[in-house]
Design a binder for these strands. Structure first.
Length: 491
RNA sequence: CGGGGUGUAGCGCAGUCCGGUUAGCGCACCUGGUUUGGGACCAGGGGGCCGCAGGUUCGAAUCCUGCCACCCCGACCA
């Protein structure tokens, strides 16, 4: 366990990777581009799953599971979709191995070539719509509101723990509706749900918006997203919700009979968030001492560290620690009493700070004598001595305060790092200096968007939903614009 | 696929130019002791096909040839 975490000012991305490893969350696998999520990292994913899953169920969605393999012909049915994913697919071509003739090991048996190649799903629209065709006949079968927790594979050229890996875990919702209005409503309902979750559970403020034509999902009519700002001033797409129109219904011939007996194609949506959220969580909140976790997602809420020399002292401390543990657990929190005698208290303090445990309680002989404990909060690193009798009652409100403080801090940061600019010169200057989100006028054309991207590496993150109407001139072309859009360099 | 780089203990590295004791250092690990209110210290110890294959040589981590793997910068990234 190293002491030094690279200061973010020098190389944020290195600092991030160090932290992921030191907090024991994940590591690069020996398998190309893949990641091993370690127990501590996975437990955060489980918290995310639990939180989101409840919200999905509360809005009428149900879970199901579809195949990992997508026949090539399925993927090819929607033109834009296949084009968008073609360049990053893993493909299964054979189903058997055999011993090499020359004894050099095991080789792919050329006799065992598949008639039709199988694609390891990069997303499941096609397999799922293939099922929907069989499931939907009438308006009575609608809406169909299904979610799946799964892994997907996208053969990325360059990977980064949590943010972009060849294989990742996610949830993907796929719904079918009788009308466009209903499907659009669903798309926005999920967008709000995502924003609610990311802000209130993860403590990361987001901007809801619509993607430009160039950035939208292949096969979608409209793509909506939530965009978060990381501490180095780069943006992270934290979740997307797509209005698919009738594109997939037409590609898979999913028609339903309406009340009037007429056949029509159903209207679809799809939406997802992935383990990338964990990367965003780390980059939005951590400091040079390590991770800072929002209490609502922390696998451990309170850690109790005993400070002792002798077995007798430990026994006395343990008794107090047990009392606190039982009472705090009763309130629904996870408490860990770290009574290991193999590590010194200082080591433990540093370790739990690295892992982002929100509240730490230290109890030593001095406290036993005075009837007190030392309580420390991770977000501000503030420490205070409190009466033993008062600790338990203080914890729920303290955790609540930490949750709010983390969010407010990130929100203040984003506010400070969001700049309105009116000229291209200013735009470039902000990008290279202050960074962050930039609100600027854009003429709405793909050419301008592409030119700005090529010249500055900044992309249009979204057209914010709450952007007020405002007459202006495009910073690049000078053509008229009706509202500002959100630019940033992104992960 | 282009440009650059690196493969030596679990991790991070030195040694390679200029071949020559038993291949070294830090962290981690093991044993013993002293410690314990912010990442302890001392002493001792274990752990290596020096990426793989071939070649040159009395002798190769070091030189030569070939191969492999990984990393970084691009291209790519709903």
């Amino acid at each position: 366990m190293g002491k030094e975490i690279t200061p973010r000012s020098e190389d944020y991305s290195q600092w991030y990777l160090d932290l992921v490893k030191k907090a024991d969350m994940a590591e690069n696998s020996d398998v190309r581009g893949c990641m091993v999520i370690k127990p501590y990292g996975y437990s955060i994913w489980e918290s995310i799953q639990q939180g989101l899953d409840k919200m999905f169920k509360d809005t009428g969605h149900v879970n199901a599971y579809f195949p990992l393999f997508v026949p090539k012909s399925f993927l090819a049915k929607e033109a834009a979709h296949v084009e968008g994913f073609a360049k990053e697919c893993a493909i299964v071509t054979h189903y058997r191995l055999k011993n090499a003739e020359d004894g050099s090991g095991v080789v792919v048996d050329p006799e065992a070539k598949l008639e039709e190649e199988l694609i390891v799903r990069p997303t499941s629209e096609t397999v799922i719509w293939n099922s929907y065709k069989k499931w939907i006949q009438s308006y009575r079968d609608l809406p169909l509101l299904i979610n799946q927790w799964a892994n997907v594979v996208r053969w990325e050229m360059r990977t980064r723990l949590f943010l972009r890996t060849s294989e990742f875990l996610w949830q993907e919702g796929h719904t079918a509706h009788a009308t466009a209005q209903e499907a659009e409503k669903e798309t926005l309902l999920i967008l709000d749900l995502y924003a609610d979750f990311v802000e209130n559970f993860m403590g990361v403020p987001v901007i809801k918006g619509k993607k430009s034509e160039g950035e939208k999902f292949p096969g979608a009519v409209d793509t909506y997203c939530i965009e978060a700002l990381m501490q180095d001033g780069k943006a992270l797409q934290a979740g997307t919700s797509h209005f698919l129109g009738q594109n997939f219904a037409k590609a898979f011939d999913v028609q339903f009979a309406g009340k009037d007996g007429k056949l029509d194609y159903v209207w679809g949506t799809s939406w997802g968030v992935s383990t990338r959220l964990i990367g965003g969580l780390i980059m939005a909140h951590s400091d040079d001492d390590g991770l800072i976790l929002p209490p609502k997602l922390a696998p451990i809420h309170v850690v109790i560290v005993p400070i002792f020399k002798t077995a007798e002292e430990l026994a006395k401390i343990s008794e107090k620690a047990e009392q606190i543990s039982i009472a705090v657990r009763k309130k629904g929190f996870v408490v860990k009493f770290d009574n290991r005698d193999t590590h010194k208290p200082g080591f433990k303090f540093a370790e739990y700070e690295l892992k982002g445990v929100p509240v730490r309680i230290a109890i030593g002989p001095r406290d036993i004598q005075n009837g007190t404990v030392e309580m420390a909060r991770r977000d501000t690193k503030e420490k205070k001595t409190v009466q033993f009798d008062e600790v338990v009652d203080m914890i729920p409100s303290l955790l609540d305060e930490i949750q709010k403080n983390i969010f407010n801090r990130a929100l203040a940061f984003r506010k400070e790092k969001t700049t309105k600019v009116d000229t291209y010169e200013e735009f470039k200057k902000v990008l290279d200096g202050k960074a962050g989100f930039i609100l600027a006028h854009w003429d709405g054309s793909a050419e301008t968007e592409g030119a700005i991207k090529d010249e500055t590496k900044a992309t249009i993150r979204c057209i914010p939903l709450d952007a007020p109407e405002e007459e202006g001139k495009c910073i690049y072309s000078g053509k008229p614009s009706k509202r500002r859009v959100l630019f940033a360099r992104a992960y």
